[in-house]
Design a binder for these strands. Sequence first.
DNA 1: ATGTTTGCAAATAGTTTGCATCCAG
DNA 2: CTGGATGCAAACTATTTGCAAACAT
Lengths: 140, 140
Amino acid sequence: MSKLDQFIDKCKHHHLKITPQRIVIFKSLMNSKEHPSAEMIHKKVKKEFPSISLDTVCRTLTIFTEIGIVHTAEGHGDPKRFDPNLEPHHHFYCLGCGRLTDFYSETLDQVKIPDEIKQRFNIVHKRLVLNGYCEKCIKK
Amino acid sequence: MSKLDQFIDKCKHHHLKITPQRIVIFKSLMNSKEHPSAEMIHKKVKKEFPSISLDTVCRTLTIFTEIGIVHTAEGHGDPKRFDPNLEPHHHFYCLGCGRLTDFYSETLDQVKIPDEIKQRFNIVHKRLVLNGYCEKCIKK
DNA sequence: ATGTTTGCAAATAGTTTGCATCCAG
DNA sequence: CTGGATGCAAACTATTTGCAAACAT
């Protein structure tokens, strides 16, 4: 079963209509090796589907995230947040309400970063980031 | 030496003037147990310093981030980014240019999440996130 | 047929920039 | 005094929402 067929099944399962816009956005995502923004996707799909609007791309990406076709990377679109806690710690980010919760774990603080990465980049800060839903948002 | 004195030293070291606005923002950050946005800080400091503008808060927070007084949390203010790569992987985020780089490590994939966190939250996704500077941005 | 989806336009949100004034050093 | 910092206004970027028309089922 092709990826596209799997995608169509998933849409049907969630009672989503299979529109040409959704298909073209899906294909673009599957060909992407990057971490595209809505606007980057829009530019790419416009070549194949010139009449598509940026809004449709935004909406479709939100839906795709909800049904697990893509994930969001760091940068959730909400305002920039600052962290005055300079102690080593880790974050849980609630996908429902956006709340960030700190947690601590010496084991996690000590996880090794692959040498290849240490060599290529100047690392200022490391942190385990969990995405999910907090108690309040599970209930809804 | 108090935190405030350390802060003043740090400012001097970076040739930054000690203005009442900067002091009041610094104090507000030190009292914060959260991950405030610029606007949240602005609301808080306005009580103590009513004439302060949101721009000053934004600018000051940017400066504070540069000199290491605060970190940025996930959510860097740039556009929302999507990740079509659903394989377990980790991210390096360049603080200079915003580029996200994937990397893989089975050891990291298997890091244990503290039970306390697993119980409190419904975790969809976990990822190690590194912040730092890529080759290109180091040169600048 | 009918209810979802689309595209447009307008609204909203958050941040940045230019510039004149002000103030810390 | 003097250059950096501030506050205001405007510009800018990214996203969301309301609505009529279009389309998938």
